[in-house]
């Protein structure tokens, strides 16, 4: 683990740059990323992965997502969004949401969109970890609850997809970020901080329980 901050420019992050990252590294992301959480993941799986015949009206959505996410980063986040005096969207609170709910979908979503990273909180499971290994991606941890601090890294809302249908927290928000810092907690070499800490804390739990 080093305290040097590694800069990443998203999208079009190279696989080799992701492969260099190790559990515990700190990265700082600048560029474009897209938010997506529960409804978005289910939608991607139902419409583009399970479905043999993709409806014509949904195809432009996938094209738009790929434009911003090919070699890019999906952010598990349901922001508080306001409109400023000029009618532009602005994020006022935008911390990460709990990622484990997307575990049934993430492997396929990483593959579908050619993601290089997923940002969230709380970590994910073995299936996502295997996708990180196989496709060259990392799981990045932001600070849960630090929503205003994080929203300040969001410099601009470029666009939004499925706002009406999904509702504001669940929509795909396409955002421009600067110096968005995260910790690599699951790397592309099969290492997960969440897994090792769970094991350590379970061991400690057993020890403590013998004193009761």
């Amino acid at each position: 683990m080093s305290n040097n901050i590694i800069q990443l420019k998203s999208p079009q992050i190279k696989e080799e740059d992701i492969r260099k990252l190790k559990k515990g590294d700190i990265v700082s992301i600048s560029g474009v990323m897209v938010t997506g959480r529960d409804v978005a993941h289910k939608y991607l799986k139902d419409v583009f992965i399970k479905n043999e015949n993709i409806p014509d009206e949904e195809k432009p959505i996938l094209d738009e997502l790929k434009k911003h996410l090919d070699g890019g980063i999906l952010y598990h986040c349901g922001p508080v969004v306001n409109k400023d005096e000029n009618g532009n969207y602005r994020f006022s609170a935008a911390g990460p949401t709990t990622s484990i709910r997307e575990e049934p979908y993430e492997y396929d979503v990483i593959k579908l969109l050619n993601l290089r990273g997923v940002i969230g909180k709380g970590g994910m499971g073995d299936k996502t970890l295997s996708a990180c290994q196989k496709f060259g991606a990392v799981y990045l941890h932001a600070i849960g609850g630090a929503a205003v601090y994080t929203a300040e890294r969001v410099k601009k809302v470029i666009g939004v997809l499925k706002l009406e249908e999904f509702g504001s927290p669940e929509a795909f928000w396409i955002i421009k970020v600067e110096n968005f810092e995260c910790i690599v907690t699951m790397d592309s070499h099969g290492e997960s901080l969440h897994k090792s800490l769970l094991e350590q804390s379970e061991k400690k739990q057993k020890e403590i329980m013998t004193t009761f």
Partner: peptide, 9 residues
């Protein structure tokens, strides 16, 4: 800033 501490209110 009088902004929500966390986006999940």
């Amino acid at each position: 800033k009088e902004a929500p501490i966390c986006q999940d209110t």
